[in-house]
Nucleic acid binder design. Structure first.
Length: 719
DNA sequence: CAATCAAACATTTTT
DNA sequence: TGTTTGATTG
């Protein structure tokens, strides 16, 4: 019976799931069962005949979340939920544009540019326009284009106030023209184009509005302006919008997310009061109290306090090590101890603010022989060998794809150098045709032979595609193009790349298209939109390393949040404005709420960053956690646990830093020591200078910056 | 056209 | 400090 699914819900969850009419905003705290509410509501709508599968539009941010929703639904509902539109904004826009490609002014088999492709396209454009990439770094141009598209702004809509922005705007327009010419779209374009098509085509708009009576959105706090407009357009005046989010977990403002969309939704869709899910089923009381205390330092929250009936649990453990190496060793020791106590490594994670911090941790873990797994990094479809193979596939589908052609025209090396390519580009520009057409028409010339060979290669592949199955084609083009041979003769790394190419073939074998006639286009879209799970090896029991961002949505028994130092977490680039600090604080909130049973907050007094030793102050976030909830494990503070670490303090620094950093200065001061000054407040000693009787200390004060102090006069005390 | 060396530069990231 | 990118050279 379906009512069984409702029985396990708490009153607020039940209220959200069974909301009869109108729109709703569900303020779902960390670990409050938001995915469950979302999926149960869809099931409730359908099981109770309140909606049909076809009336449902459910949007998520990641493919993983969409898949999970799909899986849960197929368990709850007797029918296969195929009629529903469940997916990411981009996946759904892609689906929409594949259906209405003609109306959208796109070729039927339009290709999708990922970030790499887009950057390459921009570089190519700038070269052809002879724009200096010194004055206009391609990455900046890319960011300019994407951020404006994310706000729904075309180049024509911009009013640049200076010459620099005028040029960027001009490049934006030229880039869009190039994409249109080549029939490709980037990620943001998928949404923008869908939005524009729907907003200009009334018949289409009415059709979809009549269809989607229920629109559900996950992670609503992460929507940007364009996504909000997209949703509003699909919703129209009648649809019920059910948005689930948590303003305290908004950590993507830096890529255009607008938390303000939550308030906007309440105003635009007449939501009087958000439904708050505050009961947490994940963490113990002390962890939640710490999170609540921390986040209260932010202004303008919608307001929410997590609670649990699970009891206080263990205290939050604090550790302050001398160096980043000590900090890592402490974590390794604790992980080992926890493992002895029966915790699986996979249930433990260390979170950090930036990827650079993983190095020290990996080093310590490697030394200790503990299996670990680092998240983030290159994904499957982003690997160069895969992108090469896909570029050949794109050329088979459409040889006019300049991006693809440039990628593989000389891979493997076939004697077509930069010179030849430049000639080709000149020819194509002059005659206003694609590179492929230019290559076909290139009769004479010195490199005609190698170029002709390439043209023949592609033509042959296109011929072969007609008689081969899709999987056979993928396999064949890897061989016939020479890619396989190239990696076979490659001494280092070639092995793994060959394995990946084989995996690509397996992916092609098992790929199930919606429309078999469009299998190549669908496979390529899939490759762009779903870059692939992070890596293989998920099955092994391993300690987990990742950034706080990557940890969002995950949970672990034991969590270490490392590098809690001013300048690192909060990151120095965020220290300037209040918004920056508040986003960092939300990030810390996310980090804390990942832990189920045990939470460690660790820091170092001395850290190597960018090849320079720093002496950071403890993170302000540490002060925002009530001492009553914590237990300090640092060497100087305790005996029991710390005795295990005591040798590390004396051993490691000697091995790591041979410089003057460890020396005790006259008067008992140390470099890196935290000190207090009556006027300047707290700070850290960065450097020292001694001349006879005079001792000068260079102290970095939290509030007043770095200053030289003459110790004959300054009233400095150890902090 | 490949290999080697120097210089720049180094949050967070999904689609 | 370590990596990635680019420019130069053979």
């Amino acid at each position: 019976m379906f009512s069984d699914h409702l029985a396990g819900l708490n009153p607020e969850q039940l209220r959200a799931v069974t909301l009869a009419q109108g729109s709703a905003l569900v303020l779902a705290g960390a670990g409050s069962g938001k995915t469950r509410v979302l999926t149960t509501r869809i099931a409730w709508l359908i099981a109770g005949q309140r909606a049909m599968a076809a009336n449902i539009l459910a949007v998520t941010f990641t493919n993983k979340a969409a898949r999970e929703m799909h899986t849960r639904l197929s368990v709850m509902l007797p029918i296969n939920p195929r009629g529903m539109w469940i997916g990411t904004f981009h996946g759904l826009s892609n689906r929409f544009l594949r259906t209405h490609w003609r109306d959208a002014g796109l070729p039927q088999t339009f290709a999708i540019l990922d970030m790499q492709d887009q950057l390459a396209a921009i570089k190519r454009l700038m070269k052809s326009l002879q724009v200096s990439d010194e004055k206009f770094p391609p990455r900046q141009v890319q960011a300019f284009i994407n951020s404006h598209k994310d706000q729904g702004l075309r180049a024509e809509a911009l009013k640049p106030h200076d010459a620099f922005n005028a040029k960027l705007t001009e490049l934006y327009a030229a880039y869009d023209a190039q994409c249109r010419r080549e029939g490709v779209v980037d990620f943001a374009e998928l949404l923008l184009r869908s939005y524009e098509l729907l907003s200009s085509n009334e018949a289409l708009r009415e059709h979809y509005r009549a269809r989607f009576s229920h629109i559900l959105v996950d992670e609503f706090q992460d929507t940007n302006k364009l996504q909000y407009a997209w949703l509003t357009l699909f919703a129209g005046p009648h649809a019920s919008v059910f948005a689930v989010g948590d303003d305290d977990q908004s950590i993507y403002a830096f890529r255009g997310a607008e938390v303000g969309n939550m308030r906007r939704l309440m105003a635009d869709f007449q939501v009087a009061e958000p439904i708050k899910l505050e009961q947490n089923y994940r963490s113990c009381g002390n962890i939640l109290d710490a999170a609540n205390a921390l986040i209260q330092h932010n202004d303008g929250r919608l307001g929410k306090n997590l609670w649990t009936d699970a009891g206080a649990g263990e205290p939050v453990r604090l550790y302050r090590g001398w160096t980043d190496g000590n900090e890592a060793e402490f974590i390794v020791d604790e992980v080992r101890a926890l493992r002895r106590d029966g915790h699986a490594l996979a249930n433990m994670a260390v979170l950090y603010r930036s990827n650079a911090q993983s190095r020290v941790l990996e080093h310590a873990l490697f030394q200790a022989g503990l299996p670990y797994r680092v998240y983030g990094g290159l994904r499957f479809f982003e690997r160069q060998e895969i992108k090469h193979a896909l570029a050949y596939l794109r050329l088979v589908a459409s040889p006019e794809d300049d991006n693809a052609l440039l990628r593989v025209i000389n891979v493997p090396a076939r004697g077509i150098g930069a010179r030849t390519v430049e000639n080709l580009q000149t020819a194509s520009r002059e005659r206003g045709v694609s590179l492929w057409q230019a290559a076909c028409g290139q009769g004479g010339g010195r490199s005609a032979a190698s170029l002709g060979k390439f043209v023949l290669l592609i033509e042959q592949l296109r011929q072969d595609a007609l008689r081969l199955s899709f999987a056979q084609l993928v396999s064949h083009l890897i061989d016939f193009s020479g890619l396989r041979a190239m990696y076979q003769s490659d001494k280092d790394g070639g092995e793994e790349r060959l394995e990946n190419l084989d995996e690509l073939i397996s992916a092609a074998v098992s790929f199930a298209p919606e429309d078999p006639a469009q299998i190549i286009a669908e496979f390529l879209a899939h490759a762009s939109l779903e870059a692939g799970e992070h890596q293989a090896g998920a099955g092994e029991d391993a300690f987990q390393l990742m950034t706080v961002h990557a940890a969002k949505g995950l949970e672990f028994d034991c969590v270490f949040v490392s590098g809690l130092e001013e300048g690192l977490f909060p990151h120095e680039n965020a220290l300037n404005d209040r918004h920056g600090i508040e986003e960092e604080r939300r990030l810390m909130y996310v980090a804390i709420t990942r832990a189920r049973q045990r939470l460690y907050l660790t820091q170092a007094q001395q850290r190597m960053l960018h090849g320079q030793t720093r002496y950071p102050l403890p993170s302000r976030f540490m002060d925002e956690i009530p001492p009553a909830l914590t237990k300090n494990l640092s060497e100087s503070m305790t005996a029991g646990l710390s005795s295990r670490h005591a040798p590390a303090t004396t051993r490691a620094p000697a091995a790591r830093s041979s410089g003057p950093a460890r020396q005790e200065l006259p008067g008992g001061w140390r470099i890196g020591q935290s000190v207090a000054h009556p006027k300047f407040g707290v700070g850290v000693i960065l450097n020292a200078e001694a001349l006879g009787e005079e001792l000068r200390l260079y102290v970095n004060f939290a509030e007043h910056g770095a200053k030289w102090l003459d110790m004959r006069f300054a009233k400095l005390t150890p902090a």
